[in-house]
């Protein structure tokens, strides 16, 4: 009985209301708009790498032949890649880049994590000024810094020495990494480290066992930044490294594959593409980990 009266009520209600617009149609319009915007974006950013790939698969003769369509490879070859990997200093440059980047990332993270922790957690005389100062140093462009740095590097006898890069890249990475981590660390409740201290941890244990694991997403973001900056740095190695065996990828490709005004385009493109692989791998790996860290425990149980 009550069911019957209920049904009647429902029928009356649906007859009274008029349909005005539809959520589904609205959502479709939004989706289509999003896809168009994304497509434009993808084309814009993927065209250069695609063109690089095409060029890297051509022989020098085919590149020099201006009669064909530059977007089409008629006789694809891996010769450019093969020659890079077997002759010349490309592998050495690759190794140098890895050494420099790994060292710089490690040094940067140790300094920045400690600096960011103290600046976000401990209040001491001048800590506020220091935090702002850290960021201001980041604003000084490297194109201004390399002249005085040249004096310093020369003065300590490290001109044309790969390890000079390990020494000076952190001047670029530490300020910014510290800055973004100060922001992230401040968002972590301080009761967490206090609980650890009360539970019996000393400051080092608290940092290592509690704080760093909790702050990992922020730390990884900073790591990605430090990695990208070190891997792609061009100006400093250009200014401070002159002999090929000391060079890193960015300058090595340019100096070894450009002879006067002869550009070995096929190899330059192949070298640049392979040089772009490590950042891709790092991004892919860290991003997965980063997201896993963010959602850990949220879905379990």
């Amino acid at each position: 009985m009550s069911g019957a009266s209920f049904a009647t009520g429902g029928a009356t209600a649906s007859a009274t209301y008029q349909k005005v617009g539809s959520i589904r149609a609205e959502r479709r319009r939004v989706l289509i708009g999003a896809y168009i915007a994304l497509a434009v974006f993808v084309v814009f950013f993927l065209l250069p790498p695609v063109y690089m790939l095409i060029t890297s698969l051509k022989s020098s003769a085919e590149i020099a032949d201006l009669s064909g369509n530059p977007w089409i490879v008629t006789r694809p070859t891996l010769q450019n890649y093969w020659e890079l990997l077997t002759e010349g200093n490309y592998l050495l440059h690759f190794r140098n880049s890895i050494i420099v980047t790994a060292c710089v990332v490690a040094i940067t993270m140790v300094i920045s994590i400690l600096a960011a922790f103290s600046l976000s957690r401990m209040r001491f005389w001048g800590s506020g000024v220091l935090a702002t100062g850290v960021f201001l140093t980041y604003l000084v462009p490297e194109t201004l810094l390399f002249i005085p740095l040249f004096q310093i590097i020369g003065g300590i006898g490290m001109y044309n020495n790969l390890w000079a890069m390990v020494l000076i890249y952190p001047t670029l990475t530490v300020p910014f990494c510290t800055w973004i981590m100060i922001g992230y660390f401040s968002s972590i409740p301080k009761e967490l480290d206090e609980a650890a201290l009360i539970d019996g941890a000393n400051h080092f244990q608290m940092l290592w066992k509690i704080f760093i694991p909790v702050a990992l997403p922020g730390i990884l973001a900073a790591t990605i930044f430090a990695f990208t900056v070190s891997w792609a740095q061009f100006l400093y190695p250009m200014a401070f490294l002159v002999s090929s065996e000391q060079m890193v990828l960015t300058t090595g490709i340019v100096s070894d594959l450009i002879r006067g005004d002869t550009f070995v385009w096929g190899k330059i493109m192949a070298g640049a593409l392979m040089a772009a692989l490590p950042p891709l791998l790092v991004y892919a790996f860290l991003m997965d980990y980063y997201i896993a860290g963010l959602t850990a425990g949220a879905t379990k149980g």
Binding site: A195, N202, A296, G297
Partner: peptide
């Protein structure tokens, strides 16, 4: 004496459980 050597335990308003 630092907190770790005072032999006390504290419960915070936001619980401060170690999330990991």
């Amino acid at each position: 004496i630092p907190p770790r050597d005072r032999d006390i335990a504290m419960v915070f308003q936001n619980y401060a459980l170690y999330p990991h």
